[in-house]
Design a protein around this nucleic acid. Structure first.
Lengths: 132, 132
DNA sequence: CACTTGTTTAGAATCATTATAAACAAGACT
DNA sequence: AGTCTTGTTTATAATGATTCTAAACAAGTG
C-alpha cells in the first residue's frame, strides 16, 4: 500500500508500528503541528495495541531525517513537529501560544544577500510574532 | 552605576550578582548569543566569586521579561539567548550549532500579505538554516 | 536597629529526550 | 518451510537542561 512503498523507498522497513504512525500522521486532509506527547496520545486514541514511547521518538526522528516531517523552530519545553514539510512560514500568537501556518503565497519572496563560505542554505523560515 | 539605575528602573534590586551578570552581558561592544551554560562559564572566567546556577537562570529570565535579553527561536537541546534585542535575522549552522547574526540589510524587505483579525505584527524574524 | 520583602543558594525534583541491551521481526537466501 | 543477517521495538535506565524548594541572606524602608 501507499505507506509501505513510501517507507521502503527511503530504506525504512515497513513495520506495523511505523505504518500505524503513518496513518496517524499522514492519513489526513490537513497538515498539523504536534509534540511527541500529543502524537502519543493520538496514537493511543486511534489504535488498540501499544507503541512504546521510544519507538515514537525513533520513528519521528527517522521520518524527520527522510523529510516526511520537520521540526518547527519555536522555543518551548517540548519540540514541535509539522507534517507540512513544504517551505512555509508561521504566525506565532504570543497570547495563546498557538502556531498558525502561512501559505507560501502569504509571504513575498525573501532575498538573502549574504553568503557564508562553504555553506548552503537548507531552509528559510519566517516566524511572525503576533500581539493584540 | 549605569546598571544600578537600569535594574532599579525596572523594579529589580541591584544585587551584587545581577550587577556582575550585567557586566558580562552588556559591558561589551558587540552583542552576542549564549546558552545558560556558556554564560555560566563566562561568569566563572570574569569574576572570582561564585554565582549559583539557579541565580543565573533567575536573572536571565528576569532580564528577558524586562526586555534586556531575548530568546532565539531555534530547536536545540539548550535555550539560546541574544543580547541583541532589536529585530534581526539569523543564520543557523546546523553542523556546528552556531548562530550568526545578519544585518538587517542582508535580507530584503519581507512582505506579509495575510492578516489575523485583532492581531498586530510584533516582529518578523527569519531563520536561515545552513548545511555543508 | 528592626522589619518586610526580594534574592540567592545548594540541592532535590521534574520532565523531555536519548541510550542500552535484550527480544523480536523483516527480508534474503537456500 | 528454515536459517541467517540486519534492522526494529521495547522497557527501563540514564542523561541533562530547567525548575522547584525552603532556608539563609541582603536590600530597602522607617
Amino acid at each position: 500500500m501507499k505507506y509501505i512503498d513510501k517507507l521502503r523507498n527511503s530504506g525504512l522497513r515497513p513495520t506495523k508500528q511505523r505504518l500505524q504512525i503513518c496513518e496517524v500522521l499522514f492519513n489526513t486532509e490537513k497538515t498539523f503541528h504536534f509534540t511527541i506527547n500529543e502524537l502519543e496520545q493520538k496514537i493511543k486514541d486511534k489504535i488498540d495495541n501499544k507503541i512504546s514511547l521510544a519507538t515514537v521518538y525513533n520513528t519521528v526522528h527517522a521520518f524527520e531525517k527522510k523529510g516526511y516531517l520537520k521540526q518547527i523552530p519555536i522555543n518551548s519545553n517540548q519540540t514541535y513537529f509539522d507534517t507540512n514539510v513544504t517551505d512555509h512560514h508561521h504566525f506565532y500568537d504570543l497570547k495563546n501560544e498557538k502556531l498558525i501556518d502561512l501559505e507560501n503565497s502569504d509571504v513575498g519572496p525573501i532575498n538573502i544577500k549574504r553568503k557564508i563560505n562553504g555553506k548552503k542554505i537548507k531552509s528559510v523560515e519566517v516566524l511572525i510574532k503576533l500581539e493584540d
